[in-house]
Simulated assay, not measured.
Amino acid sequence: MNDQHDIEQRVRLAGSNMFELLLFRLGATPKTGTRELYGINVFKVREIIAMPVLTEVAGSSDMILGVADVRGEIIPVIDLAKFTGCVAREGNRILLVTEFARTTQGFAVEEVDDIVRLEWNRVLSAEGHSSGKTVTSIARLDAHPGGRLAQVLDVEQILRDVLPPSEPEINEEHTGRLVIPAGAKILAADDSGVARALIEDGLTAMGVPYIMTKTGQEAWEVLNRASEKAVRDGRKITDDIALVLTDLEMPEMDGFTLTRKIKSTPDLQAIPVVIHSSLSGAANEQHVRKVGANAYVAKFVASELAAVMRQAIAGAAP
């Protein structure tokens, strides 16, 4: 699939608050022995191949099966079954080659099941349903109650646990200060717990107050309340919400839909929107511009995030 066709397909899906979920199985679960369904956004998956020959790397994490040579690129292969506690009785037969958060890696799975197209409102946050950090959300695969469910994995958390990045401490020395109107806040939305913690550290280093939300729907509700208050007080909306920083993949309402709704609402469209996503790459940068965002930055480098937010605020100023 070429990049332009890929971008157009994503824009069409985003316009309908939809996405495609790749479903796979990791083996038997530890408590019930059930072969549960797990999922990952199709647009994070570069290719699906039979498990290649692996080379075990001395001293690596026991969550790493080894490295593989995939089309001339050496990539680590993460044992998702071991990470989730499943037992892959039929073996890790399939490799999902994924690209996100500026990295390429492979996820070993037992079996690929299907690709399904879903509305984001059929994906609900897993917070409150699980004390673990491995799953961000639960997807209802069937429209009727009591149907199949799939667990959407928090790949950002998995990567940080298995392959922790070497990055500088997040502080003002690296981010600089971000100047916004007195009394205003940054509104941020991200469904990943590890991403929210990093964003909070970054915004604190920039010296700005913020409102943190877990879904696009939650952020949209915050914006509507802020808009009503701004109208009552006779203030500009940007005096209260200086910028929206949003992830793309989120339960209930994704970042594409949130951005489109902001930019198509007269009382909100002056707010600069920065999309902050692990869906990195040139194709995704073109994609987010098509839905009206002021800027895009790949996760997660605090100094780059600060610079892009600064530029977006300056560019949106009258």
Score class of each variant (00 low, 15 high):
105 Q>L: 14
106 G>Q: 10
106 G>F: 11
108 A>F: 07
108 A>Q: 08
109 V>T: 11
109 V>P: 08
111 E>Q: 13
112 V>D: 01
113 D>C: 12
113 D>T: 14
114 D>R: 14
117 R>N: 10
118 L>A: 10
118 L>N: 08
118 L>Y: 10
118 L>V: 11
119 E>Q: 13
120 W>A: 13
120 W>G: 09
120 W>V: 07
121 N>D: 14
122 R>V: 07
123 V>A: 11
123 V>R: 05
123 V>Y: 04
124 L>S: 13
124 L>N: 12
124 L>Q: 12
125 S>D: 13
125 S>M: 08
126 A>Y: 06
127 E>F: 09
129 H>C: 14
129 H>L: 15
130 S>G: 11
131 S>G: 14
131 S>H: 14
132 G>S: 12
134 T>C: 10
134 T>E: 15
135 V>W: 04
135 V>G: 06
136 T>Q: 13
136 T>P: 05
137 S>H: 07
138 I>Q: 06
138 I>G: 07
140 R>Q: 14
142 D>R: 06
143 A>H: 12
143 A>I: 11
144 H>Y: 14
144 H>A: 15
145 P>E: 12
146 G>H: 09
146 G>M: 10
147 G>I: 07
147 G>Q: 09
148 R>G: 06
150 A>Q: 04
150 A>H: 05
151 Q>I: 12
151 Q>Y: 15
152 V>Q: 12
153 L>S: 09
154 D>E: 06
154 D>W: 04
154 D>S: 05
155 V>L: 15
155 V>Y: 09
156 E>T: 08
157 Q>H: 15
157 Q>I: 06
157 Q>E: 15
158 I>M: 09
159 L>V: 08
159 L>Q: 09
160 R>G: 00
161 D>H: 10
162 V>G: 02
163 L>N: 01
164 P>G: 07
165 P>T: 01
165 P>Q: 03
166 S>D: 14
167 E>A: 09
168 P>C: 04
168 P>G: 08
169 E>Y: 07
170 I>G: 00
170 I>W: 00
171 N>L: 05
171 N>F: 04
174 H>M: 15
174 H>F: 13
175 T>K: 00
175 T>F: 00
176 G>I: 04
176 G>N: 05
177 R>A: 13
178 L>R: 05
178 L>H: 05
179 V>R: 14
180 I>D: 06
181 P>E: 08
181 P>V: 09
182 A>G: 13
183 G>K: 11
186 I>G: 01
187 L>C: 10
187 L>T: 05
188 A>Q: 10
189 A>R: 03
190 D>L: 03
191 D>W: 02
192 S>P: 06
193 G>R: 04
194 V>K: 01
195 A>W: 00
195 A>F: 01
195 A>C: 12
196 R>T: 03
196 R>N: 04
197 A>E: 11
197 A>D: 11
197 A>K: 11
198 L>E: 04
200 E>G: 03
200 E>C: 05
200 E>N: 04
201 D>V: 00
201 D>G: 08
201 D>C: 01
202 G>M: 09
203 L>C: 02
204 T>E: 08
204 T>I: 03
205 A>Q: 00
205 A>M: 00
206 M>D: 01
206 M>I: 02
206 M>A: 03
208 V>L: 05
208 V>P: 02
208 V>Y: 04
209 P>A: 07
209 P>K: 03
209 P>M: 02
210 Y>I: 00
211 I>H: 12
211 I>R: 13
211 I>L: 15
212 M>I: 07
213 T>A: 11
213 T>D: 05
